[in-house]
Amino acid sequence: MFGRSKTEDLTAAQVKAMLDSHEILLIDVREPAEFAAERIHGALNFPLSTFDPAALPPCGDRRIVMQCGSGKRSLMAAERCRAAGLKVDAHLAGGIGAWRAAGLPTITLDLASGAVRDPR
């Protein structure tokens, strides 16, 4: 298995800037219920529980960055990608928690009404 040093820790600000400039494909490896409740605009959901690196969409010249709730599962997903021969070498350090702590917007689900709230 690959060590942690092979995966670059990106800050929320770095990931936001790269998303805004369309440099990355953000892959959220949290479970579907977590993703439905709150997510980063533009992230794609590929849950770690069923994660198959071969199922990732083509990303062209964009870099793939993994993301989860706290950073643990995204590291695991990056390691699985590298073991499968894919160049995935970065993740959102601290996950969506770090994203929120940086004051960045998320898409949320209003549990009372079922409405999706997207501040963008």
Rank of each mutant, 00 (worst) to 15 (best):
Ala12Trp: 06
Ala12Met: 04
Ala12Arg: 06
Ala13Val: 15
Gln14Thr: 08
Gln14Val: 01
Val15Pro: 00
Val15Asn: 01
Lys16Ile: 13
Lys16Asn: 14
Lys16His: 14
Met18His: 14
Met18Gln: 15
Leu19Cys: 12
Leu19Phe: 13
Asp20Gln: 15
Ser21Ala: 12
His22Gly: 09
His22Ile: 05
Glu23Leu: 13
Glu23Trp: 08
Ile24Ser: 04
Ile24Val: 12
Leu25Asn: 00
Leu25Met: 08
Leu25Glu: 07
Leu25Ile: 12
Leu26Gln: 06
Leu26Glu: 03
Ile27Glu: 00
Ile27Cys: 00
Asp28Leu: 01
Val29Met: 09
Val29Ile: 12
Val29Glu: 11
Val29Ser: 05
Arg30His: 09
Glu31Ala: 14
Glu31Leu: 14
Glu31Ile: 14
Glu31Arg: 15
Pro32Glu: 05
Pro32Arg: 11
Pro32Leu: 01
Ala33Gln: 15
Ala33Phe: 15
Ala33Pro: 02
Glu34Ala: 11
Glu34Tyr: 04
Glu34Thr: 09
Phe35Thr: 08
Phe35Lys: 08
Phe35Asp: 06
Phe35Ser: 05
Phe35Glu: 07
Phe35Ile: 04
Phe35Leu: 02
Ala36Asp: 04
Ala36Gln: 12
Ala37Arg: 11
Ala37Asn: 10
Ala37Thr: 15
Glu38Met: 03
Glu38Thr: 00
Glu38Gly: 03
Glu38Pro: 01
Glu38His: 04
Glu38Arg: 04
Arg39Asn: 07
Arg39Ala: 04
Ile40Gln: 09
Ile40Met: 06
Ile40Cys: 06
His41Asn: 11
His41Gln: 14
His41Leu: 06
His41Ile: 10
His41Gly: 12
Ala43Leu: 07
Ala43Asp: 13
Leu44Ala: 05
Asn45Val: 05
Asn45Thr: 05
Phe46Ile: 08
Phe46Glu: 07
Phe46Arg: 08
Phe46Val: 07
Phe46Asn: 07
Phe46Thr: 08
Pro47Glu: 09
Pro47Ser: 09
Leu48Cys: 13
Leu48Val: 12
Leu48Tyr: 15
Thr50Cys: 04
Thr50Ala: 11
Thr50Ser: 12
Phe51Val: 12
Phe51Glu: 04
Asp52His: 13
Asp52Ile: 10
Pro53Tyr: 04
Ala54Arg: 11
Ala55Gln: 13
Ala55Asn: 10
Leu56Ala: 06
Leu56Tyr: 03
Leu56Ser: 08
Leu56Cys: 02
Pro57Cys: 00
Pro58Thr: 15
Pro58His: 08
Pro58Gln: 09
Cys59Phe: 12
Cys59Trp: 14
Cys59His: 15
Gly60Arg: 13
Asp61Thr: 05
Asp61Leu: 03
Arg62Lys: 12
Arg63Tyr: 01
Arg63Asn: 11
Arg63Pro: 15
Ile64Val: 14
Ile64Glu: 02
Val65Pro: 07
Val65Phe: 05
Val65Thr: 07
Met66Arg: 07
Gln67Asn: 08
Cys68Tyr: 03
Cys68Ile: 10
Gly69Asn: 11
Ser70Glu: 01
Ser70Asn: 03
Ser70Gln: 04
Gly71Phe: 08
Gly71Glu: 01
Gly71Gln: 05
Lys72Gly: 09
Lys72Cys: 01
Lys72Asp: 11
Arg73Met: 08
Arg73Phe: 03
Arg73Ser: 10
Arg73His: 10
Ser74Thr: 13
Ser74Tyr: 00
Ser74Gly: 06
